[in-house]
Every structure is written in C-alpha cells, then in structure tokens.
C-alpha cells in the first residue's frame, strides 16, 4: 500500500459517500445514470468473487464489502425507493449499456491473465469498469446542467482513477516485477474518458460558476 493507492481508495469511497448523501438528503437521483450504477454493481460483484477464496488484508476485505453493498444499495434506491425512483431521468438515460457488458465479457474471454472462471470475471470487471462511466457522461451531456453533488461525485470518481495511475507508476518504479498490463491499460483508458469532464469542471471552478457541459 502506498500513499497514491490509499488516496485513490479514499476518493473512490468519498465519491460513493457523496452520491449516497445526494440521494439521501435530496431524495432524488436526478442527473445520475442508473445504467452506470448497475454497471458498477456488476463490476464489483464480478471482481470480488475472490472474497471467500483469497484473504489479502482486513482493509481489503472491508473495502470490497463496502463497494459491493453500496453499489447494490444505490441501484436498489434508484429502482425501488418510492421517492427516489420518481426523480430518475429515464428519458435521458438511454445508453445501451448491455453492449458494454457483452463487449467487456467477450474481451475478457480473449484477454486474461489465466483461463479460470475467477480470472475471466476479474478481467471482465476491469474492462467493464473502464467504460461504465459512459452512460453517466452521456446523461450529463444531454441534460447540460450538473448539480453540485453530482459534479463532485464524478470529480471524485475521476480523481480515484488518476491516483491509481500514480500508484501504478510508483509500484512500477519500486517493485521489481510489477507488470499488470490489463489493469494499467484499462485504467488509462478509463481515466482518459474523464478528461473532457475535468476540463469543464476546472473551468467552472476557476470562474466560480455553476458546472455546465456544452450540448
């Protein structure tokens, strides 16, 4: 564990807390893509199949449980909570996310570290996480306006990815055999998807104005 990895995990956790706070405090999920949230739930369940077979640390196990539970809770709220579900921007959230699931799984069958069920699901989760933000970015682009909490949620998610890249650079320089092509290449792709959002986020921050994305 290095400082970048810890900062990445903490901003990831923070992003989920901000999202839960938004949903809980405003009883609304407007501006949030349910499809992206469903993809994250699939990502965590698929990736943490090793929860019962490999023990790494208490920290590791705790975080895995938090990520699985929070992502399922968010999807549950958006689908079934009587007030929250009413605020869902159904007509804006039309990205065909099942294609992402299919393509990621196909890629995992071709590119994986080992040909085992767990490893294929692990690779699948890495590929799917890389593109899972797309429905969310498309929804924001369509609605144009981004409320503060939604903007911060995506900012922290992007920060989490940026810190993971620093973590890999650090590990590459300090660990003799650190070569993780699948995770690193997917991670760079994932972070690149946030570049546009970050650009407009910083502009609005600099001008102290409301975050707006161009149509």
């Amino acid at each position: 564990m290095n400082i970048f990895r810890l900062a990445g995990d903490m901003t990831h956790l923070l992003s989920i807390l901000v999202l839960l706070l938004k949903i809980y405090a405003t009883k609304s999920c407007s501006g949030i893509s349910r499809k992206t949230q469903e993809l994250y739930a699939i990502v965590f369940v698929a990736r943490y199949l090793d929860l019962f077979t490999d023990f790494i640390s208490v920290y590791n196990t705790f975080m895995k449980v938090v990520f699985i539970a929070s992502s399922l809770a968010i999807v549950w709220c958006m689908r079934f909570h009587p007030m929250v579900r009413r605020s869902y921007d159904r007509e804006l959230d039309t990205f065909r996310h099942y294609f992402l699931v299919g393509a990621s799984f196909a890629l995992a069958l071709i590119l994986h570290e080992k040909f085992t069920v767990q490893e294929i699901f692990w690779a699948f989760s890495i590929y799917l996480e890389a593109v899972a933000i797309l429905p969310q970015l498309v929804l924001l682009q369509r609605s144009g306006n981004v409320d503060n909490l939604t903007g911060q949620y995506i900012f922290f998610l992007g920060a989490y990815r940026a810190f993971y890249i620093l973590n890999w650079i650090y590990r590459y320089l300090t660990e003799p055999h650190f070569t993780r092509w699948i995770a690193c290449v997917s991670g760079v792709v994932q972070t690149a998807l946030y570049a546009d959002f970050f650009y407009y986020y910083f502009i609005s921050w600099k001008n102290n104005s409301k975050l707006k994305l161009p149509a």
């Binding site: 990895r5 995990d9 990831h12 990736r47 090793d50 490999d54 790494i56 590791n60 975080m63 895995k64 990520f67 570290e113 692990w122 993971y164 973590n167 660990e175 055999h177 650190f178 070569t179 993780r180 995770a183």
Partner: peptide, 10 residues
C-alpha cells in the same frame, strides 16, 4: 517476468 500473486488492488 514474474507476476505478483493474486489481485491486491480494489
């Protein structure tokens, strides 16, 4: 090159 065993990242 040798690979670190298991996936230690989240």
């Amino acid at each position: 090159t040798e690979q670190t065993e298991g996936h230690d990242e989240l």
